[in-house]
């Protein structure tokens, strides 16, 4: 078949809202875009284990420790679902990890902020995972089948993440003045970075049009950001915290919340490597990879020894 016929068939499949599956023909650019997006998402899950993982040994109760362990284990699982999806496109996950630790592929800017108190664990669940859910629910209908299916699994599990965070914060808000101050402090630090998770504004997002045409993305960055603000503002009221934005208010005409201007220079700075924890996060991931090398080697040697007649 000629490339034109193949491309036609691909476009028709997308237009009919059918999924593209691994062995289908697809334009090189679609494949490259999917690998980049899925890898970046996988890396975010894996790096995302670090900010909260630091609190596992310091969780204030066995209950909170068990919950946090399960949550961080889920993040690892999400990373693996996504590397699995990337491999269906011909990417190799060892190679992707290499690209992450040498800085050639990116991960979500949000994980370059530090977790200064235990309230941060709750706020990450509520705001960061809440924003992730807003982003990810539409991706369950993404045009690439394996990615969409991975997102369905992930979204089911993210709901636990968000609820445990909110419950943790409710518990702290019912505690002492000191605990309430910790929650407010964490909200003040994480609110704006959470809004930046949706990416640059639509006016500065050159790939959005192509991704929407290919149904990789279903909504623009600004649409999803607005949806998140609309969901979250009432939750902040219920919790009894204030969001650090004097311009945040309900606009009855738009039937949405208005909110203040985002400092995009901060997002650019953090993405380009100059956030508070960029170097630390990559160094930790690299260290884990290097420390695991002998285990991978030993397991391969064991497998070879016991393989018998098998290759």
């Amino acid at each position: 078949m000629t490339t034109d016929t193949l491309e036609n068939h691909f476009e028709q499949t997308i237009d009919a809202d059918q999924r593209i599956e691994p062995r289908d023909w697809m334009p090189d650019k679609y494949r490259a875009t999917m690998i980049r997006q899925i890898a970046q998402h996988a890396h975010s899950e894996i790096i995302g284990m670090q900010p909260e993982g630091q609190w596992i040994t310091r969780a204030p109760s066995l209950r909170r420790k068990a919950i946090l362990l399960a949550k961080v284990q889920d993040e690892a699982g999400h990373g693996l679902y996504l590397y699995s999806a990337a491999e269906t496109l011909g990417a190799d996950r060892r190679d992707l990890t290499g690209q992450l630790i040498t800085g050639r592929q990116k991960y979500s800017s949000i994980f370059n902020y530090p977790t200064l108190s235990f309230a941060d664990v709750g706020v990450i669940g509520w705001l960061v995972d809440g924003a992730a859910i807003c982003n990810q629910v539409p991706l369950c209908r993404s045009s690439y089948g394996p990615y969409a299916r991975a997102m369905i699994r992930i979204c089911k599990e993210e709901s636990f993440h968000q609820r445990q965070g909110y419950e943790l914060l409710m518990t702290m808000m019912a505690g002492t003045d000191g605990q309430r101050a910790m929650v407010q402090g964490a909200v003040d630090r994480w609110w704006w970075p959470s809004l930046m998770m949706f990416g640059p504004p639509d006016t500065d997002s050159p790939n959005t049009a192509q991704s929407m045409a290919w149904k990789i993305k279903r909504h623009t960055n600004d649409e999803l950001r607005q949806r998140f603000v609309d969901m979250t503002a009432p939750q902040a009221d219920a919790l009894g915290v204030s969001l650090p934005d004097p311009d945040l208010s309900w606009n009855p005409e738009r039937e949405h919340y208005d909110f203040g201007a985002i400092d995009w220079s901060e997002l650019k700075r953090v993405i380009s490597g100059d956030g508070p924890c960029n170097a630390e996060r990559i160094a930790r991931r690299k260290e884990a990879d290097e420390n695991g090398a002998w285990v991978r080697e030993a397991a391969a040697a064991y497998a070879a020894k016991h393989a018998g007649g098998k290759s």
Partner: peptide, 18 residues
């Protein structure tokens, strides 16, 4: 989905965990 493992037994255990 899929996963990487050094042998069949590890694949089974990893599949359970994942």
């Amino acid at each position: 989905g899929s996963l990487r493992a050094s042998d069949d037994q590890m694949a089974l255990h990893n599949a359970r965990d994942l």
